[in-house]
Design a binder for these strands. Structure first.
Lengths: 222, 222
DNA sequence: CACCATATGTAACAAAGTTACATAAAAATC
DNA sequence: GATTTTTATGTAACTTTGTTACATATGGTG
């Protein structure tokens, strides 16, 4: 388990602190769909993603979701261990978007190290700021963009991530990503189909005209 | 200028670092409406609010705004000096919501200290996490709440902050806070008026039935 | 093949944003 | 003080998105 490849501050730790980190770090395998952290739980571990993909999202009282950001290989999942930083008072849910492999480190262990080394606190800072950045991007999208452009952008993103034009996604799942509802996504995808941008199948969407989607997804000023 | 009352880590700094901070810290007075930091600028100073109120918001290409959070006495404005933390790639605008007095410290000075002391990095962490928390609350509001309840909650908040039932706010300003548009706010306030929750005057809103607004603003499950 | 869970389709209506003006009150200017 | 200008508010028609309430379709399983 190569912790040093995940932690840029690794070289600054003392031998004993390295040993502590290594002794507490555990490799876990999680199945697609598994909930890794549920906001209401007090505090879980700090996670390093070695393979797969995690999705962080929030859920309303009525069960409506919106994806905040996704985490891929080499990323650090900070808010599964929100207790590392106080003054956080919101519930983020983290699930495995694919079968994934992660390294988990008890929050307390990481916290102790962080309180000892400025470099570790600074790195934690950077990770948090990056997530903040993602959420701010989302805020701009939600407040200022129309749903058709968000949907088009999402389809393209999904296509790029999985390197395929045949997306295995239900309308329901897309709605959950975008903070919308199934009926609206169905309606909009139908429209995309009449425009020959996509072809719809049960449980899947085929991108036919990527350029057309990009035009909708990245409008200069509409 | 009592920096130590603003920085919980003050006692941990060396004498010389304290002197550096104090020598670079400057008191500034800013007028209501003044833009203190515009996202596009590279990096300004770190700010401590000694009196008044600052507002952080984002603006779309078309000029539509939404307030992210507000900062009051004793608060620290981190993102006016976003360069302190790398990996931030979004533009926050900070303006004085009231005539205010602030202490400004050059970002570079603070950054140097932060890189030296874990306690300073941790505190910066806490401040950022608190802002993140605010933005996450807003995200939930924007995605999951109806505008009438957000408007009602905003009127109450505003009333509490200024300790008056006579709010000096135009429909336009309210819309900018909530990320909506003037026409919609006008429409909704008119409705509130027919329900005898508020009384509308040019440039002002008088809260008549606070309990009624609270009922709209804090619905259990709608 | 029948049954069932999941996925999709659709229509009518409600909520919020957009466009495009009209009107009204205050402030500035003459 | 009357006139012009600026700022604030009012409103209607229309679009987009969300809600409610079903209907229909598809693929897997016994």
């Amino acid at each position: 388990m190569e912790l040093k490849t995940y932690f840029p501050f690794w070289d600054k730790l003392s031998i004993s602190d390295k040993e502590i980190m290594e002794s507490f770090a555990k490799i876990k395998k999680v199945k697609k769909g598994e909930i890794i952290h549920n906001g209401t739980e007090n505090c879980s571990d700090l996670l390093l993603i070695t393979d797969g993909q995690l999705r962080a999202y929030i859920m309303s009282e009525e069960g409506k979701e919106i994806t905040l950001y996704r985490m891929f290989e080499r990323d650090m999942c900070l808010f599964s261990a929100a207790c590392i930083v106080n003054s956080i008072e919101f519930d983020i849910i983290v699930e495995a978007a694919l079968d994934s492999e992660i390294i988990s480190i008890p929050a307390e262990v990481y916290k102790n190290i962080m309180e000892k080394y400025a470099a570790v606190a600074l790195y934690t800072n950077e990770v948090m700021a990056a997530k903040f950045s993602d959420v701010m991007w989302l805020m701009d999208q939600v407040v200022n963009k129309k749903l058709d452009s968000r949907l088009a952008a999402f389809l393209i993103e999904e296509s790029d991530i999985n390197n395929t034009k045949e997306l295995k996604l239900t309308h329901e799942k897309i709605a959950r990503h975008l903070g919308s509802v199934r009926e609206v996504i169905t309606r909009m995808l139908k429209y995309f189909q009449t425009e020959e941008l996509v072809k719809l199948n049960r449980g899947g969407i085929e991108i036919i005209n990527r350029d057309g989607l990009e035009k909708i997804g990245e409008p200069s000023i509409r």
